[in-house]
């Protein structure tokens, strides 16, 4: 797409979309939102980038190597947090009983492993959106 208005607006908007996505992702335990919503926002910002600037530039920002690491990393972070539960408390994905700090309910640092799990889910969902879109778009242009 070779339109200066679209390019400028996208360039201004994309950082704010991503920032808001991260905000939603990190506040999943105190406000509506969470890993799915935040990850979908970040993924959509990359979809917008791909639509405006083309697949080649987007591939430079989010290469297949990064996508491999993000996808495996998100799910491995989740499983690793579950294994901590097995070691500390004897059952998979234990939260407070496994020694995660509970904090004051309602504050930013609360909920034990819930924010960490939300980050894992968010990385996973975002990279899935981007990779699936890249795969479909690539095929069309080849």
């Amino acid at each position: 797409m070779n339109d200066i208005i679209v390019k400028t607006v996208a360039r201004i908007l994309i950082p704010f979309i991503q920032l808001y996505g991260i905000f939603i992702m990190l506040h999943g335990h105190v406000s509506p939102g969470g890993g799915f919503a935040g990850g979908a926002m970040i993924g959509t910002s990359f979809v917008l980038y791909t639509l405006v600037f083309g697949i080649d530039k987007s591939k430079k920002k989010f290469s297949e190597r990064v996508s491999e690491y993000a996808e495996s990393g998100g799910i491995l972070l989740y499983i690793a947090l579950g294994l901590i539960g097995i070691i500390m408390a004897g059952s998979f994905l234990t939260n407070i009983d496994a020694g995660f700090p509970k904090g004051t309910p309602g504050s930013m640092f609360s909920g034990g492993m819930i924010p960490l799990l939300m980050i894992g889910i968010g990385i996973k969902v975002a990279s899935t959106f981007i990779t699936l879109f890249h795969t479909l778009i690539e095929e069309e242009e080849a």
């Binding site: 969470g34 799915f36 969902v125 699936l132 795969t135 479909l136 095929e139 069309e140």
Partner: peptide
């Protein structure tokens, strides 16, 4: 439903790739 939405996205993309 939060879980279900993601499953529908997966199914949609899979069928779209089959259509391609």
């Amino acid at each position: 439903i939060l879980t279900g939405i993601v499953v529908v996205v997966s199914i949609t993309v899979y069928s779209l790739s089959l259509v391609v």
